[in-house]
Design a protein around this nucleic acid. Structure first.
Lengths: 153, 153
DNA sequence: AAATCTACTTACTTATCAGTAAGTAAGCAA
DNA sequence: TTGCTTACTTACTGATAAGTAAGTAGATTT
């Protein structure tokens, strides 16, 4: 029942999405949580472990959310999807993909793999979302892309 | 005269756009250019100075380019604009805005100011580009945004 | 010819980073 | 009650970061 572990994941995700992977350190986590640096290393031995765990949790959350929407019409599902990004954007956050991919070349291997996986999962869902809707012409593929743009621009 | 200065700017821009501001150091510049660390500090006393100079040069280049396009029709101007981003994207590069804005909160003040300025200049030009075209309905405002998306996604 | 400027160099400082080794208090399990 | 696990702690290491002080060879100016 480590409440600290999830608190580290929470803070870590916030830091990545507001500052970027290379612009935060374990100190930025241990300070606010009032624990020592090594305690963060206890839960996540390396920074890459932490980064990968954050992506994992994000993917799991995405899976749960979309599963809970499964009985809604495709258009509504898509609206809910974009709503999430718009809402976090208003907080000054950027999605994980938007925060991490610009520095792709500098990411540790395991994180690259997880990120790629997450990208595929989202794209698959988005594709399925479009295919399912009978009104396939109503929302073109331009819109999700446009949505993602706003997360960075 | 100082060919090194512009070589530093070239390499610095490449590093920012492929790795991000926080994922490169003066060592990554001095090494390939076969000069010492302090030589980079000679030209750009702080990393923020280097970053700001890179944004400055980018803005100047944008101004020169768009000026050289001024006699083309709006649609062609817009095509040339997107072409630049698509071409660099194929090299694995990201535009300066796309590379820097995710870590906005962590950027030194002077760089934030320059970046904001660059964003405004590009948006102004884009707006002018749209207004000038008689076929204002042909390309909506969705497309430039979509273009930017590809730079990150 | 002397002084100054440009474009560096060597050698250093200070700070911060990720990561590790070793120890410990509290809880549970046999 | 002994031993094992969990969730930390203190105290450190080695690497790398940005930045600086002082010196210098070569070109330019006076």
């Amino acid at each position: 029942m480590s409440g600290k572990r999830s608190a580290i994941l929470d803070l870590g995700e916030m830091l990545i999405r507001t500052r970027g992977y290379h612009a935060f350190s374990y100190h930025d986590i241990s300070g606010p949580l009032a624990i020592r640096n090594a305690a963060v290393h206890y839960h996540f031995p390396t920074k890459a472990d932490l980064g990968a765990a954050i992506i994992d949790r994000n993917m799991a959350q995405f899976g749960e959310l979309t599963a809970s929407w499964s009985h809604y019409p495709a258009g509504e599902q898509f609206r809910l999807f974009t709503q999430i990004y718009l809402a976090s954007r208003q907080q000054g956050w950027v999605c994980l993909m938007g925060a991490l991919s610009p520095a792709w070349d500098t990411l540790p291997g395991p994180m690259q793999a997880k990120l790629r996986q997450m990208g595929e999962e989202i794209l698959d869902w988005l594709t399925g979302c479009r295919d399912k809707g009978k009104a396939a012409g109503v929302f073109g593929f331009g819109e999700p892309t446009r949505q993602k743009a706003q997360l960075v621009w």
